[in-house]
Design a protein around this nucleic acid. Structure first.
Lengths: 164, 164
DNA sequence: GAATTTACGTCAGCCTTGTTGACTTTCCAA
DNA sequence: TTGGAAAGTCAACAAGGCTGACGTAAATTC
């Protein structure tokens, strides 16, 4: 058995174990996105719209630049998505009162409905998985994911986790 | 505290906890792909090439239809990727001896080199994360991911996990 | 008050990677 | 020998990334 001076068993760090983790991420992410994707296909929307809707719901009144930082895409890319959502009446964009250059984004009632449908589906899968494995495994899951993030992303993640 | 008849604490199943898990998946997946993406940009390759290379490395001699089932894309899409890899001398495709309709795929030495570079980078991040959180968290991580997969994907995953 | 910077929007064009549909070639198996 | 599976190819298209350039309004700085 591979033991460190400290005495821990390091078998979970072998290339083989790491490969399994990599493949698990790959296959699980497919499951993670499968249900919302199914709902969105047929509508004119895709995964990009889902992400925008999710984070606007999460942080109502957020600005465009805020969203850009979270999503990690260009403003042109986000704008295309946002424009259709606004045109279709799912998202409301209003000029900032303190800084009129900013646009504050909110979901309309219609937007809330779609958000609900999408997140219900995604949460259902997550809930089933969580329930199947128990709270301790879930804690480990979250710890590993957080440790895998880029520092900048971890900052975004933790800001969302705590603040409104 | 929310307790079931069985007595377990169910606070880890609240919508809020599930949302955190969803966002953790989102941000972590970005980190997960960031390093290979960085290596591939500049080359003429992308994430699709990485995936093909990974699974050919993982199962040398695998057939095209096998790969299609694992990757979950259309043959036209895979073919485009595979063609460039073969043209560039990273992948070797040879007619099956027992069933000559099949093409068996192998990495060339050049392909092995790129695979190594990509997986080294990806494993380094995974290793750092694993090491930071310890074996028990890693076990939970893997359990949740496996539980999140579609049954068909879980089958693929487990086949890879065990068999060659 | 003028110049600069910031936030946002938009036009145009490009790339990767996914899709469908139609068609051919090869070749195994009933 | 014929049907169907496996593989490959061509064409066309869409989503959703990207860069570059440009415009405008508002805030900030000099």
């Amino acid at each position: 058995m591979a033991e460190t001076p400290g005495g821990e068993n390091l078998l979970f760090l072998t290339d083989e174990q790491l490969r399994k983790g990599i493949e698990a991420m790959f296959f699980a992410y497919r499951g993670f996105t499968a249900d919302p994707d199914r709902i969105l296909e047929g509508m004119d929307y895709g995964r990009a719209h889902h992400r925008a809707i999710h984070f606007i719901h999460r942080s109502p009144g957020t600005t465009v630049s805020n969203l850009l930082a979270i999503l990690g895409v260009t403003k042109q890319s986000l704008n295309r998505v946002l424009r259709t959502l606004i045109e279709d009446g799912l998202v409301r964009s209003e000029k900032g009162k303190v800084d009129a250059r900013e646009r504050h984004l909110h979901l309309t009632d219609k937007g809330q409905m779609l958000e609900r449908e999408l997140s219900d589906a995604q949460r259902a899968r997550m809930r089933a998985a969580y329930r199947a494995v128990g709270p301790q495994a879930v804690q480990g899951f979250r710890q590993v994911l957080e440790a895998m993030m880029d520092p900048e992303m971890r900052r975004q993640y933790n800001r969302l986790k705590e603040g409104g």
